[in-house]
């Protein structure tokens, strides 16, 4: 499992490899798959209505009851998941081996693997340069490549626009879908997080992966530094030692506010440090979700 630390993963070029490595780590960590039996097993009968597929008519039932019944299978109620990945410029920040975006795309890729493996439909909404690149959810195995290619091509650029992503998802996403948001939430628009979390009110299952760099958490700067804004023209010259205490207070309060907002909205929240082992992050996440079922 030493393969899965941030340093090792960083050596693997491309999301596909990293995501696969993570996915395998996750699968080996699961003692019992919670997804077994969710394939094409019979679920129930439904009286035929025009428009139903004729191939699902249960002829045996017709012989017994002289009425048309349509067989319904489990796979038809499978999950529709959309992974929202923030690819704004701030996600490109790294103080160690991996940037926040690289971690986000790796986690998203691994989740895609898992979803497709259990025949769930996985889609992608990539926020980059202020726009949304949308890959609609599909459950086919071939769709995985499309998803992974999109993640591979993601580069940090532009400002964070969670509001636009939330609005987009609200329009296109049917109810009872699963939405997984991977972002650093450094969006100046205070409404954006609320709108994302509001998706939960539409019966969607929303999960949040909050990505932070260790340097953002500890502010380990000593010398006078000119800090440059990664999403705009802002710059500020400070002596980091003088403001460190205050910065840590402010940033801690920000993390706490995001976490408490998620808790209030009944949204799964996972704080992800970019130097963490990603399989552990996913296992933690899946275990938490397992407990919720």
């Amino acid at each position: 499992m030493a393969l899965l630390d941030a340093q090792t993963l960083a050596r693997l070029q491309g999301v596909k490899l990293r995501a696969r490595a993570v996915m395998e780590g996750v699968l080996s960590g699961l003692h019992k798959s919670p997804h077994q039996g969710q394939s094409v097993e019979f679920a129930e009968h439904k009286e035929y209505a025009p428009g139903d597929e004729l191939r699902h008519l249960d002829w045996k039932a017709y012989g017994k009851f002289d009425r048309y019944y349509v067989k319904r299978y489990e796979h038809e109620t499978n999950l529709r998941s959309v992974l929202v990945v923030d690819a704004s410029a701030s996600m490109g920040y790294r103080s160690g081996e991996l940037s926040k975006l690289e971690v986000a795309t790796t986690l998203a890729g691994a989740l895609c693997y898992l979803l497709v493996r259990q025949q769930d439909a996985a889609g992608l909404a990539l926020m980059t340069d202020g726009r949304i690149q949308d890959v609609p959810p599909r459950a086919s195995a071939g769709h995985l490549n499309v998803l992974l290619d999109s993640l591979e091509r993601a580069t940090p650029s532009g400002g964070t626009n969670l509001l636009a992503a939330a609005n987009h998802l609200a329009e296109v996403l049917p109810r009872r879908s699963s939405v997984v948001v991977l972002s650093d939430f450094l969006d100046e628009n205070q409404e954006a997080l609320k709108r994302i979390l509001a998706l939960r009110q539409r019966k969607n299952d929303v999960s949040v992966f909050h990505l932070v760099d260790p340097a953002e958490l500890t502010f380990p700067f000593d010398d006078p530094t000119l800090f440059l804004d990664m999403e705009g023209e802002g710059r500020i010259e400070v002596n980091p030692r003088e403001i460190k205490e205050s910065y840590l207070e402010e940033f801690g309060a920000f993390l706490a506010s995001v976490k408490s907002a998620c808790a209030e909205a009944d949204v799964d929240y996972e704080l992800v440090r970019t130097d963490e082992r990603m399989d552990e992050v996913l296992l933690r996440y899946l275990a938490k979700r397992g407990r919720r079922r």
């Binding site: 010398d223 000119l226 990664m230």
Partner: peptide, 13 residues
């Protein structure tokens, strides 16, 4: 001072 691009600039400010 050494320039350093930093995401949470708002908090620094």
């Amino acid at each position: 001072p050494r320039p350093h691009p930093f995401g949470p600039l708002a908090f620094v400010l």
